[in-house]
């Protein structure tokens, strides 16, 4: 079943056009990666799926329902969670309070269970539960951002550069957890990455974006082997 279908979507920031007709499809149970150069429009696509900025043309469907014109909080309530670019934690709030904020659109009865789940996923967060978000290390902040997005029991998780600024070991760990979320909790994942090598290895499928358009798509393995992709995003970039 198709979870997310993006059809010919255009989006712009005022006069600056960022997306020029993007088509993307994410099927239930998949991990799909989106890679591309800086400024290609990857973050914009994730944000547009959540309705900010709005698609000026085209159509976005979530579980078969048209969400193109829904307000952001409605989209989130339907089961789309996003860990936006730059983490955007609540730095003055404790870890637990951040997680509570992640659960605002969820059934409060599930809170304890969900908390236990993300603490099992990221034991370090349990240790730091009362520490302020802003004083966590970069890696811990990234884990908290993902954990917070998971607290809403999303059907589709949108991750923007989860490995940004992390040490190689932590990058591995983050991708390990993404895979675990996907297989064990059956969350469909659509993730944006600069770290193409890792992303394409965990992803079932991938898209390559350039200048606001999808220029290439295929299975993760095929993209990894593709000469064009290797030249542009992998060689030397490791």
């Amino acid at each position: 079943m198709t979870v997310l279908r993006v059809m010919d979507v255009h989006a712009a920031y005022g006069p600056i056009k960022a997306l020029h007709g993007v088509d993307v499809e994410v099927v239930e149970g998949e991990i799909v990666a989106l890679i591309g150069a800086n400024g290609a429009g990857k973050s914009t696509l994730l944000m547009t799926i959540c309705g900010n900025p709005r698609a000026s043309r085209g159509r976005i469907e979530f579980l078969g329902e048209d969400i193109t014109h829904l307000p952001t909080h409605e989209i989130v309530r339907r089961g789309v969670a996003q860990a936006p670019e730059g983490r955007r934690l609540f730095s003055f709030m404790s870890v637990v309070e951040n997680l509570q904020m992640g659960a605002v659109s969820a059934d409060p009865r599930h809170f304890d269970e969900d908390l236990e789940r993300v603490f099992t996923l990221y034991p370090i967060l349990r240790e730091r539960r009362d520490q302020r978000g802003g004083t966590l290390s970069g890696g811990e902040q990234q884990m908290l951002a993902i954990a917070r997005a998971l607290m809403g029991r999303p059907k589709l998780l949108l991750l923007d550069e989860p490995s940004l600024g992390l040490a190689p070991l932590l990058v591995k760990q983050i991708f390990g957890v993404i895979r675990e979320i996907n297989t064990r909790d059956r969350v469909t994942v659509f993730l944006v990455e600069q770290n193409a090598h890792h992303a394409l290895r965990v992803a079932h499928r991938g898209y390559v974006m350039a200048n606001g358009r999808i220029v290439l798509q295929g299975t993760g393995r095929n993209l990894l082997a593709d000469a064009e992709v290797r030249r542009a995003y992998l060689d030397g970039g490791r």
Partner: peptide, 17 residues
């Protein structure tokens, strides 16, 4: 909690619903 969160980061709040 949402009041305090909004004060800190409105975009993050929106993306959480």
């Amino acid at each position: 909690r949402a009041w305090e969160a909004l004060r800190e980061d409105e975009i993050a709040c929106r993306s959480l619903g």
